[in-house]
Nucleic acid binder design. Structure first.
Lengths: 193, 193
DNA sequence: CGCAGCTGAGACATTCATGTCTCAAAATTT
DNA sequence: AAATTTTGAGACATGAATGTCTCAGCTGCG
């Protein structure tokens, strides 16, 4: 009926609700719908009008997260140029959506849905390809598998998302902290002892 | 009544149930008690006889995780010797309990309990102190805060725990992958170009 | 100003996991 | 072997979150 009357407005409405949901769900995946509705500034009834139920909401948050991650990969043009530079661009592009990634990492239940699973596999393959390319170019270490690099990268992005949301890490520091630790490691380079 | 008749046997029984619970809960924190009981090879009734309820079980798993983490810090003697060597020892000591750490990382609800919270803060302080010491010794990079290094380290340990449990990472590779990535980063050292 | 549609508050039913209980079978002790 | 204890299977109650509905108030539009 009315869902299609103002497609543009409705879309932003849905998205703003999803944003609010992420803010809650990335910290407490089992939060009640009441809480999510309140965070979105709407009533539980309206939340139900927008999303048929909890599962649908979770699913859409997951889909949003994957769309954003995919968009970040596009924005960063991870398939182009020097692999290290591409990864640094990816860090900058993905950090604003780190909370969404934290949600994706924590919601293992999502991976029951084939649709979500396929989409995730697609994005992960792009990240793995980036590392593989970097290894072939001699930029990334070959002792660590591309699959592990990809997994660890995502773990750290999710960690950043959590830490920022819970105030343990300043948002302005997050991209730097992620890029430097992941690329350079914790050890001080002792090229000049 | 009977809980105290065979303290030794009862203790191992409790621990074996807790181990089984970790195996399930680290992957699906919302798993039903049925599932946990089956994984432990006992009935739901007996599970209830050992642990008064779900919350008590979760709490004990959390406490076990923190005890193990604390024991790993002891085993690794993180306060002694070269900071890098100490961290490498910590990696080896903590990797066997990585699944437990994954559970701790995912169960934010645990941190409502002051008891658990204090215990965690204690362990985290030890890790932070290790990084701080390493920074003062010139071993670890000073551009990254000790708090972030500590957080990221734990994120990667938890990630290892998940990846191993879900078969994405071979257990034998896990310690190496963790230590090398965290300490050395993803970039190939080009000291000899 | 009046109308149509959307929203929020609340009541209500439903579902599902949990918590509790009983009893028979199995295990262990004496 | 008898007795005591423990266990497992199931029935049942409870409680909490979800899903559904109604209705009054508000908003926006003609």
């Amino acid at each position: 009926m009315s869902q299609l009357r103002y497609p543009g407005l409705m879309a932003t409405d849905r998205d703003s609700v999803l944003e609010a949901a992420v803010g809650i769900l990335s910290r407490r995946p089992t939060a009640h719908l009441d809480e999510i509705a309140r965070a979105a500034g709407i009533s539980r009834a309206t939340l139900h009008r927008i999303f048929p139920g909890r599962e649908a909401l979770i699913l859409e948050v997951g889909a949003l997260g994957l769309r954003r991650f995919s968009a970040a990969l596009d924005t960063a043009r991870v398939e182009e140029g020097n692999a290290e530079a591409a990864l640094r661009r990816l860090v900058d592009a993905v950090v604003p959506d780190a909370a969404l990634c934290a949600f994706l990492a924590g919601e293992n239940q999502l991976y029951d849905h084939e649709e979500i699973n396929d989409l995730w596999e697609l994005q992960d393959a792009r990240v793995r390809a980036l590392f593989l390319r970097g290894q072939q170019e001699g930029v990334f270490r070959i002792e660590l598998s591309a699959a592990w690099l990809s997994e660890a990268f995502f773990d750290l992005v999710a960690g950043i998302g959590c830490a920022v949301q819970e105030g343990r890490l300043a948002p302005r520091e997050s991209a730097f902290s992620l890029a430097e630790l992941f690329l350079g490691g914790a050890l001080r380079r002792s090229d000049t002892p």
